[in-house]
Write a protein that binds this DNA or RNA. Sequence first.
RNA 1: GGGUAGGUAGCCAAGUGGCCAACGGCAACAGACUGUAAAUCUGUCCUCUUCGGAGUUCGAUGGUUCGAAUCCAUCCCUGCCCA
Length: 449
Amino acid sequence: MQKDNSPAQQDKNPTQEYNNLIPQQAGLIKELTWRGMIQDIMPGTEEHLAKGMTTGYIGFDPTADSLHIGSLVPILLLVHLQKAGHKPIALVGGATGMVGDPSGKSEERNLLSEDLLAHNLAGVKKQLEQYLDFDPSRPNAAEMANNYDWFREMSFLTFIRDIGKHITVNYMSAKDSVKKRLEGDNGMSFTEFTYQLVQGYDFYWLYTHKNCSLQMGGSDQWGNITTGTELIRRKSGGTAFAFTCPLITKADGGKFGKTEKGNIWLSAEKTPPFQFYQFWLNATDADAEKWIRIFTFLDQPTIETLITRHREQPEGRHLQKTLAREITSFVHGEEEYKKAVATTEKIFADQSAAAESLTEQDLESMEGVKIDYAAEKLAAGTDIVTFLAETGILPSKGEARKLVQGGGVSINRKKVDSLQLILDKGILLHGKYLMVQKGKRNFYLVRVI
RNA sequence: GGGUAGGUAGCCAAGUGGCCAACGGCAACAGACUGUAAAUCUGUCCUCUUCGGAGUUCGAUGGUUCGAAUCCAUCCCUGCCCA
């Protein structure tokens, strides 16, 4: 158990493994197929890719100023595309973001203000830039695009004459995302109805201006994507291709990427790497088997070996550890990954050990779980409920009280069994730390300053 | 514009004068069991509480009544049908 606990030494350097796995241009579809990353695919796509370097794109909606792990799959598709020798375009939806995608939504969306949109756009763009290779000396250098650039100057009349004329309302209404809303209880505004056309035009624009003949995306985008290929066919007689990846689900049917703390974001500010790492480490066995193929670049034999090993010895959690290692170092870099592991080991490795056995260095080096608390307050003595509420560990006194009553809070690894517990200086570790545990998996290190 | 069905807690959804802080389900959180897993069982799940209660809720505003989520009026919003 202890030996296996340090995944860092368990396998080779992850980036090395990425590199020795460069499928050929034609092999992209095969590669993605065994990974379970293909849901729908347009006939002829594989043959088209085999002909040579193809430019493909995926659109990202700026609904927040950071992408979350739901966007990770599309990002990975682009990375795979580039690894296979094709050219990826990451499109940010400056224009489509203003309209709102009805796909998968049962209700009309609220429009984002323009300021917020601009802010989000900048954040999303910055993140996307991290994951692809934009080096212009590469023949298949990645590119960034913003559909606002071509929609900004377009007039409404131009849109309905030059684009709208090519697609019938019948065609648009037949799309699942539209049909559901037409049949449902909430209706659909004209704005959202036009969304697929707006997105469809993106594809057409990229097709004519950037020679982009492939669109990818989540399977919820299939309807929007095919409107694009249809538009290309009708307006310019060309042929474009597309495939989608399945939406990531959890075995228990819950929403992927959500925890009690909310969304798991890709930005370290919104989700510290430690928590990011923990999210993957906590994957259930069933999920881990699926996810490791999708979220890592490990090759098929490696993954199969891992799965076999895991089935024989599930309590070793090799699968989760490898998954968490690969994806954390991909998103946050190896340094952050190592810190996350170090913190994890200190917190979880030997839980029966007294909190006092942790050295000051151990505590200080814990990343992603620290909270500061004013020394004066503690000097006077604070009751546990107030303390939990003031540190923000629990949102209110009421909730703090309930959780303590339910036995869900520990201080310095000792369960709090009384609401009357008064915290004062005497309880601090090394004179300045307090280890607070909420539930089994949520740790906070309160540092008194 | 006319007709009609609706608007209940994070979501779905009961309730149609007092027994309603509001059945039930989902989601969520915690406890037990475990492998920081799943399944299962238990508890919590509007806010505050000295755990006795207290305060604010059922689209909005007024009204009827000892008493309203439930009745009436007006308004707002949504679906569907007709024009």
